[in-house]
Amino acid sequence: MAAGGDHGSPDSYRSPLASRYASPEMCFVFSDRYKFRTWRQLWLWLAEAEQTLGLPITDEQIQEMKSNLENIDFKMAAEEEKRLRHDVMAHVHTFGHCCPKAAGIIHLGATSCYVGDNTDLIILRNALDLLLPKLARVISRLADFAKERASLPTLGFTHFQPAQLTTVGKRCCLWIQDLCMDLQNLKRVRDDLRFRGVKGTTGTQASFLQLFEGDDHKVEQLDKMVTEKAGFKRAFIITGQTYTRKVDIEVLSVLASLGASVHKICTDIRLLANLKEMEEPFEKQQIGSSAMPYKRNPMRSERCCSLARHLMTLVMDPLQTASVQWFERTLDDSANRRICLAEAFLTADTILNTLQNISEGLVVYPKVIERRIRQELPFMATENIIMAMVKAGGSRQDCHEKIRVLSQQAASVVKQEGGDNDLIERIQVDAYFSPIHSQLDHLLDPSSFTGRASQQVQRFLEEEVYPLLKPYESVMKVKAELCL
């Protein structure tokens, strides 16, 4: 049975990233139509530049190519590739079939990587351009969430054990800070992308030097003109047959890092959902379990974690691919890159769409948070109580021993009897502590235990987050809708 299948058929496997999760716009960027249309555009740009620099290419040939950029006979191309065992030459023939007058000058002087690699770089750039505003929107939604809850005390956790208090907004800023680093890295790697350009079979530009009869300047002009037509500021000066596969490492490393950030955020949300302090959106008709109707599973956060793990592992592909590119190139890269580049971007696209949807509907339960604080705060307040007693004339050592005994009794009630923490009640009825009984409410005010959390939130948002989001103001209103 021949390899390949009808990918629109229910009898043929289709990647869930495309069929179930990723956005239509990201799927289109990695589609065959987008790819092969870009090949034709690159052939047109090459012909236009070659004509401008004096090669015998007519206006009629150029116009014929322009008129057929979208006229792609995919069936013919597939048949040609089956016959020739070469995808680029299959599309040269297919393009030439609908451009008979231009057929002889299509791909003039070029090698397969002229269309293959340059198209990949265009796709990487455009895919990054799709991700950047999506990530900015996630940051914006979380920034709104953090600002609104900047002063809401909550129990902090280290080692997932109760620690000092923080605020809900401050905790959210930990998430935002990681995503801001990801946004900066995505922008950097996007701006650092260079075009492969017009380089020939081993990167020496020998074929173009021959076409222009040894004119170095025209060869350099050709490279520059096509690079500018493709919208790049610069091209690699040095290439082998391909652009260095280190570029793929750079791009997928940034995406993998984004995956790590999203995994951490969504894990926190899942843990908070278990504590009943916070939940992701839950639709009115949504079913959490087929057997347990009360369940409210954090399905979206779980999906993000599941896909983020996949995204983090994909960076190993370009690392290994770059390491086995012998001399000017081997074909070890080809099949692998067809999979890992598309999957990385479709996965990143999915987790950003999902995280935006989550961040637009996060639900906080202040009463649950308050109750958990009441359970733990008495123990945390013991040092403040000791200091207040010393100020009232008591002995630190005597007070410490009193607190120690009462704390152990209260802990026994919590752990052995399943009761509430009654340390404060014990202190309130103990005559030894009568000098500070009137101060206990103040000493137990949760806001006095959150330090500068709310001020940190305000400063972080104003100095770091809002300036970073400013270039994306025009796209901030787009909502994230999930079908599944």
Rank of each mutant, 00 (worst) to 15 (best):
G4K: 15
G5D: 14
H7E: 13
G8I: 15
P10S: 14
P10F: 14
P10D: 13
F30I: 09
K35A: 08
R37E: 11
T38N: 00
T38H: 06
L42D: 04
L46Q: 04
Q51F: 05
L55R: 10
I57N: 00
I57W: 03
Q63L: 12
E70C: 13
N71I: 10
R83M: 10
H91N: 13
T94D: 06
A102H: 02
A102S: 11
A102R: 00
I106V: 11
G109L: 00
T111R: 00
Y114V: 02
R125D: 06
R125K: 14
L128M: 10
P133A: 13
I139G: 09
S140M: 14
R149H: 08
R149F: 12
L155A: 00
L155Y: 02
F160I: 01
F160D: 04
Q164K: 00
T167L: 02
C172D: 04
W175S: 03
Q177D: 03
D178S: 05
R190K: 14
G197E: 04
Q210T: 14
Q210K: 14
F212K: 04
E213S: 12
G214L: 09
D216V: 07
D223V: 00
K224Y: 13
K229C: 06
F236I: 10
F236N: 05
I237E: 07
T239N: 01
I249K: 05
V254R: 14
V254N: 15
A256G: 13
S261C: 03
C266I: 06
C266S: 10
R270V: 02
L271I: 13
K284I: 09
Q286N: 06
S290K: 03
M292L: 03
K295H: 00
M299K: 04
A308L: 06
H310S: 09
L311F: 03
M316S: 12
T321Q: 12
V324F: 13
T330Y: 03
T330E: 02
D332N: 01
D333E: 03
D333C: 05
S334M: 04
C340V: 15
A344Q: 04
T347F: 14
A348I: 09
L355M: 15
L362W: 03
V363Y: 05
V364Q: 04
Y365T: 04
V368M: 02
K391G: 14
K391N: 13
L406S: 05
S407P: 00
Q408D: 10
Q408G: 14
V413R: 10
E417R: 09
G419I: 15
N421H: 05
D422R: 01
V429R: 15
Y432L: 06
Q439N: 11
H442E: 15
R452H: 05
S454T: 13
S454W: 09
E462F: 11
V465R: 01
V475I: 10
A480R: 15
L482D: 08
